[in-house]
Design a protein around this nucleic acid. Structure first.
Lengths: 99, 99
DNA sequence: TTCATATGTGAACATATCTTCATATATTTA
DNA sequence: TAAATATATGAAGATATGTTCACATATGAA
């Protein structure tokens, strides 16, 4: 069972992912879009925060490739970027439940 | 494949874990102590930061039960709190490698 | 076109956070 | 005892961050 040695660059890279998920609103945004695309408006309603704030957070999540956007008419639907992100979050929530 | 619905409280709880691991120095501290206890002094040397800073970060990690401390003489050895934390970080670093 | 709706963006502010420095406490050595 | 080492802690400052507000852009409806 060898230890994990992270080069400073890798630590920074992984820490950036953790950092983005370390804000409750952002975390809930990702979790709300794990299985199906959801519009900005619906996300704002679900979380009970303004569309503007949702948009700000989504921009960061999209820039980090944790989420991706798809435009349909005048709405934009967001979802988790890939199966990788989905597994990652399922692992973490599983760990949370075990405690 | 049902979605993950997080109550606000759960989101905050999980986000706190992510938030703590979202700082590069703290993330490296945890990763350095996954398999064996390491003293504050050695951790500071490994990461190239001051013992004071290490101590500040370890205090947060310990308070969140991500790490635990064991005193031996005038040194204090820290390690990941349990197998749970170890698996969690291994999962995440595995995901990082896959990309 | 005009109006309403959906989303994005920049500025500004309050707050949080990381780091450094000085200092305190505890333990071992001389 | 005194000195040296290891760790912890509080204050202070620079920076980062989350949120709100105002406004811009884009698309569809009337």
């Amino acid at each position: 069972m060898p230890g994990i040695h992270l080069e400073p660059d890798q630590a920074t890279e992984l820490a950036e992912v953790f950092h983005l998920l370390g804000e409750p609103n952002r975390l809930r945004l990702v979790c709300s879009c794990l299985d199906e695309p959801v519009s900005v408006h619906d996300l704002a309603e679900q979380l009970g925060i303004s569309s503007s704030l949702v948009s700000h957070h989504l921009r960061l999540l999209k820039a980090a490739r944790l989420m991706r956007a798809e435009k349909r008419g005048r709405q934009v639907f967001y979802q988790a970027a890939d199966e990788h992100v989905r597994r990652m979050l399922r692992d973490m929530t599983d760990h949370l439940d075990e405690e």
